[in-house]
Structures are given as structure tokens and as C-alpha cells.
Amino acid sequence: MTALLTSPTNATLRAFLHGLPGVDAVGLEQRAASLGTRSIKTTSKAYALDLALRMVDLTTLEGADTPGKVRSLCAKALRPDPSDPECPPVAAVCVYPSMVPVAAEALKGSKVHLASVATAFPSGQAPLQVKLDDTRAAVQAGADEIDMVISRGAFLAGDYLHVYEEIAAVREACGDAHLKVILETGELATYDNIRRASWLAMMAGAHFIKTSTGKVSPAATLPTTLLMLEAVRDYLDQTGTKIGVKPAGGIRTSKDAIKYLVTVNEIAGPGWLDPDWFRFGASTLLNDLLMQRAKLRTGHYSGPDYMTVD
């Protein structure tokens, strides 16, 4: 693979990606469903809830976002449950580039990372130069994680080299910031494509591969995430480089989050059960995690009015 990467051409990339083993959709979905039946109770549930909480990329990506909204999101990220001093902070806050300065100020001095979407999120339909400027601006403003989108049109047209070069260029523009590459799996249509896109992104320099923007349905699904976890597992085996995975969009309940953690545990292995290697791109999930956490601690449900809305 190293020879392939020194000077990739579209033909060599294509030959490699199409040489990956195929994915049987029925089998993949059955495996995901069976992992979903694991019963996680008591102590293991407490562990999973805390871990999931520490893995949340608390996200707001609305046209209507204001500095005030972002500041309150950051406050929540730092202290998700003000009534419980034991409650850990989330992994990161994820915002649009224009909101990065506000968030950077609010998170200053904390260990909570600041992620910014970039590269003409969510469609990615902009010239490369615009995407690179978008990225650099976000990094300069204080983002230490960049969530980019791939050009799905180019990928579906078979122009793998274009996608590869774009990711590599954005990676360079990131400097020290970590790069998450959003595949937008809901637009890639087949599991075979998702496996190929995962490998393409990893080879091009992604630190993380991420399922979705959250703007396209379906967003993250368990089978898709399982498939991407297989990809990072195999990539580590073959290259020695470890890549993270971030499902995003549609994960709203603790029950769902625990299914994802079981899948991480049994597919990629315990080595990925860490916010450095697995994240949830989510907003409403956090409150459900807090509610379930409080339930385990106190023995009763408090109700949504006892959780802050943002």
C-alpha cells in the first residue's frame, strides 16, 4: 500500500478500493442487529453511560445559531450536569466556522476540544481553494478539530483521485488540528461504497472517519458504523496507524449509544473505547445520557424539565 500512496493515480486507487472484500448487506445488518440485543445492565450500564458522555461531540449546526446559543452550549459541554460534580465534561463542541471564535473563548483553559465543520459543509460543493480557506480560518480561530465533507459527487463518479487529493490538501491545511472526514454514508448508497470511502479517507490522511453531516437521511446507522469500525480495525492491522470513528446524526437515546459502544467493543476492540478514538456527533443524546445517569444514581427518573435545554 505504501507504493500505492507515494504517487496514487485514479487507476491504482480504483484497483485497490475495488479489490477490498465485498460487503454482504444482509449479513452485515444481521450482525449489527444481534449486537443490538446485548443486555447492558447495572455496573456495565453505568460505565457505558459515562463513557458515552465523555465521547459526545456536542453539536449545533443551524443557520440560526447565535453567539449566545453557542456560549450556552459550551457551558453545558463543560458541566453537563451542574447538580453532579462527578459528571465528566463531553469530548468536544462542534460548530460552524463563524462560531469558532465564540466557542474558543468559552472553552478556553478547558480540556474540551473545539471542532468546526469546514469545506463548505454540508454539501461540499465549493472550489477547493474555498474549502481550504474555510479550513484555515477555522483553525486560526481556535478549532483543534476539523470535520470536513468529501465530494460525494466525485466519489460516485469514480473520481477517487479527486477525493483523495482534496482530503490530503485539507489535512495539510489543518496543521496540528485533527481531521475528521465525513463520508455522508446516506448518499453513498451501498455498503461496498462505504467501505471504499472509509479506506480512501484513511489513506488520504484522516484522523477520524465520520458517518454523516446530520443533514441527510439516513444519517448514522449501526450497520454503517460497524462497517467503518471493521475498516479502522483492518487499517491498523495492515498499516499500524490507528484511526478513530464518529457516527453522527440520529443517535438520540442512551439505549442506542450503548448499542454503539457494544459494537465498538466487539468489532474494533476495547482499544477504541476512548474519546480519542470514538465520538458521538449528537445534541439531544446528551440529555438522555444525563437522565439515565441520574436514574442509576438516584433510582428514579427526574423528567426532561430537570435537564437543561442547552
Partner: peptide
Amino acid sequence: MFEYAPAP
């Protein structure tokens, strides 16, 4: 480690 507690 993610140990699964007994779930009988």
C-alpha cells in the same frame, strides 16, 4: 474494560 454485568 467494558465488562458486561450478568443479565440473567
